[in-house]
Design a binder for these strands. Sequence first.
DNA 1: ACTATAAATGTAAGCGCTTACATAATTAAA
DNA 2: TTTAATTATGTAAGCGCTTACATTTATAGT
Lengths: 336, 336
Amino acid sequence: MATIYEVSKAAGVSLATVSRVINGNARVSERTKEKVHKAMAELGYKPNAIAQSLASNRSNSVGLLVSELHGSFFGDMMSSIESMLRDAGKHVVITAGHSEAEKEKQAIEFLISRRCDALILNAEAVSEEYLKSLLDNNIEIILINRNIESLQERCIVLDNQLGGYLATKAAIEQGHRNIAYISGPHFKEDAQQRLAGHKQALEEAGISFDSSLCFEGGYHESEGQDGFNALFKQNNTFTALICANDEMASGAMTAAREHGLSIPNELSIIGFDNVLFARYLYPKLTTVDNPIAKMGEMAANWVLSNIYNTKTSTPINHLFKPELIIRDSLGALHAD
Amino acid sequence: MATIYEVSKAAGVSLATVSRVINGNARVSERTKEKVHKAMAELGYKPNAIAQSLASNRSNSVGLLVSELHGSFFGDMMSSIESMLRDAGKHVVITAGHSEAEKEKQAIEFLISRRCDALILNAEAVSEEYLKSLLDNNIEIILINRNIESLQERCIVLDNQLGGYLATKAAIEQGHRNIAYISGPHFKEDAQQRLAGHKQALEEAGISFDSSLCFEGGYHESEGQDGFNALFKQNNTFTALICANDEMASGAMTAAREHGLSIPNELSIIGFDNVLFARYLYPKLTTVDNPIAKMGEMAANWVLSNIYNTKTSTPINHLFKPELIIRDSLGALHAD
DNA sequence: ACTATAAATGTAAGCGCTTACATAATTAAA
DNA sequence: TTTAATTATGTAAGCGCTTACATTTATAGT
């Protein structure tokens, strides 16, 4: 693999000049520019990004930490961030934290060790202190889906409570009073907030929260099934079931059907996130839209304008509002 | 950020010694080892991976190219590769190629410029020559889902034709004779092969292939819908529909239902891939299992044993056989 | 105690770039 | 022309590590 030195020799100029034409950040006469380009082409020269990073202390890459590499939600997030950044000529280094503090730290440290210019973090398990310590060490971070009071301007979050509220309220407006809830894992902020929204809507309607109608899942399909089964066994009077994400909603739907319930006639189900497959479920899932792709873009924008100064600073929206998407899985309560 | 130099000063030893304790690849006395560890801890020292790579010409990271960052299929693939490699202390740098030759090249070159020790490629658009040229330049690559005659030992593929064959044969065995097919994009190898398998099964049963029963989609849900609609309008005599992946199958199911067809009574549908959500569709999707996670692990294993010599070489399986997963969306043809 | 060996540590030359600074070439002004 | 101001190019010192080689120190054998 050819080095800059070989190029400089072939072009009959100095290292510095070659570097200048590579980076285009200093004036070089047209004539030598051509010579250098020719030499690079002939040698098939590709700059060694590692050496560039070491010398310049910039890597043109941004780190992205997600909880998982699979799943519609994270997929959309990675996708939107990557395409926006790539369009700007930046590269994304993705790692997974698996919602475990230790693994998240490891992943973040990997990104730092690779000298990413900025980190976009969907960090769920790591402590607030740790995140702040990163800033103290001059690591540029922006958080998606996590709200830290003192780091407001670096947080991009969804109003999860509002989302939970909207879902439950929609059920109430259809006449439901016995409403079950399958929550995400309580250690996750978003799960807590969505549940809080649920309770808020219940309270507003004068319905008291019944913990036997609430199941804690882990955001996976199978836990939607488990959740339904557990709830149904324990207290099968509910006519609506709110799930903290679409995956669990689809699992719950499947389980409900196995119990012979027809949706939405006998049981209404509402999801959360509005992932792509929600509209391909049967019945089509009524859910709360989570504009994760937009949030990802916003984070990418933030990096572009704050780190690379490459964007006529788009005003950054730090708090996104979810919307209810009405489809077929929520029905009016029949007075039977 | 502390450097190795500061550590060496704090510990009262030379740079080289610090480097030795970091890498653990040369003998250092217990006493100095301790001194160095203490100094590192006190300074909060983290090796600069960039500098390490430059000096050692190894990066301990492997590059992964996938077509998209979203979607169940790629999600499973990324996930299995990452977790296996991470367990071995290696890191994965993921990029997306978006099935476009130019973007795939760019992505691969990025990975090379980051000096990844090996590349795991799910390259769909880039030419065979290009891939071979990488090897000529001593880039260690292993291909997933792509079969190149002369690179057999670096290819890990699924027997897609067998998969297509199994799906169609299953329909035939249930008495279906009018079988429609929604294919993936023809420029993709796997799509072609699956279709070939379909044709093979047809031929074996003495059914002639009818191109008006075949629609070319792009592997997305919406194209499953479009496909069904187009086929149905044109020639609605088919009683079974084979789709080249589960996403399109779910789209087709939705569209079929909108036309009032009941599945599987009036129309049987079979998918391909057996992604997680296939079992949460209604009816549960009969499909062909694509062991992508295992294939990913196999690729990771290959890297571990061939590049890092870190694995008691697991025998590498280069050709995976798919299996039919029977669920509810395929039914026997009613003699009505 | 005295070598011969082995073990531990140090020295210094890179790895392939960027960039401040110095120098040379060009252009414009007088 | 000369000189000053610009513009283009070169020189060389790093960036933070690894590693061949040299040197020193410890261990064992006699």
